[in-house]
């Protein structure tokens, strides 16, 4: 709707400025505007996203070793190989469990931060920025800081220094999988990197809740605190919550950077993408099997997303408000 409004406002102005140039009018046409704005993105999307996806699909039916232009058709053999491969199936299971943990945790932490920051009377902008800043940090850089300085296995690593004050021995956080301390490192890095962004989404949603609702609730006798939060705030955040959960879920399945950098050359704690990378796409160059795995993963992400959308009513946000 806003475009129509803009056009009506803008067109007379343009005509006044240069009535003799038909090019202006052409540029003002909504079709041209549409393609001008979406064109570059569509081209990028097609070239860098859709074409590779289709090519992957094609590769997954071929024996493609050390080449991406294969000629030996093998039917579903690559799919059989990947789906009977314990490591790949195992990584799908592990990461469903990981997603089941990290999604609610990040959701709760971001919401908590948003509520706290939203309550602030002073320095609100400061804290908002402080919590949002990690979003601007690259996953790789954060992984290196976590690995080399905070959770370094040697005695002068930050965490080991702290443990040393209490007389606890050094822990090789990322090296020794037993007990699995590496989850502490991964989860803390991920929370630090992600919560800020979702916090901003929640703050925006919180500020959108009309004050009258709270006033009405107070008049009706709702106690401030938990009761108000449970029956007013939370239902009002439904649309945002759904979107956040959806984004988090996709992000959990797409996890790669911090796992790849923190856990080098392990056989555990591998998200499906890292598993695919080690198994097929990286040094082994078995692009057929790798593509089959990627297709399986894509289908899985789509299925989970659709199911979740159905379950939580994504896209029906307007009505449920």
């Amino acid at each position: 709707m806003s475009t129509t409004e803009t056009r009506e406002l803008a067109r007379p102005a343009a005509a006044k400025a240069s009535p003799a140039k038909p090019r202006r009018a052409l540029r003002g046409s909504p079709t041209v505007n549409f393609w001008l704005f979406t064109g570059p993105f569509l081209i990028g999307l097609t070239v860098f996203v859709y074409a590779p996806i289709l090519w992957s699909l094609y590769l997954s039916f071929f024996e493609a070793r050390f080449t991406v232009t294969p000629d030996k058709f093998v039917g579903l053999e690559n799919y059989t190989y990947m789906l009977t491969n314990d490591d790949f199936v195992g990584s799908l299971v592990t990461f469903t469990a990981f997603a089941a943990f990290i999604v609610p945790t990040t959701w709760a932490l971001s919401l908590g931060l948003a509520l706290l920051v939203n309550r602030l009377r002073f320095m609100r902008a400061f804290f908002r920025s402080v919590f949002f800043l990690p979003t601007a940090c690259s996953y790789v850089a954060a992984s290196l800081i976590w690995k080399m300085s905070i959770f370094s296995g040697v005695r002068f690593g930050l965490m080991n220094t702290v443990l040393d004050w209490f007389g606890i021995d050094n822990i090789a956080w990322l090296v020794d999988p037993n007990p699995p301390w590496y989850w502490v490192v991964i989860v803390s890095a991920r929370l630090w990197l992600q919560s800020g962004f979702y916090m901003i989404l929640f703050i925006a949603a919180l500020q959108n809740i009309p004050g009258e609702l709270y006033e009405a609730a107070a008049i009706d006798g709702a106690k401030p605190g938990w009761q108000t939060f449970r029956y007013i705030t939370l239902p009002q955040l439904r649309a945002t919550s759904t979107a956040v959960v959806l984004l988090l879920l996709v992000a959990a399945y797409q996890a790669f950077d911090e796992f790849y950098n923190l856990l080098s050359k392990t056989t555990w704690g591998r998200p499906p993408l890292v598993e695919l990378y080690y198994k097929a796409l990286g040094e082994s160059q078995d692009y057929g099997a790798g593509s089959a795995g990627a297709v399986v993963l894509t289908v899985l992400i789509c299925a989970v997303t659709l199911l979740q959308g159905r379950f939580m009513g994504f896209g029906r946000g307007e009505e449920s408000k």
Binding site: M148, F151, S152, G153, V154, G157, D169, A172, W173, L174, V175, D176
Partner: peptide, 8 residues
């Protein structure tokens, strides 16, 4: 516990 692990 005699191996150096997690060295920089």
């Amino acid at each position: 516990g005699d191996l150096l692990l997690g060295a920089p």
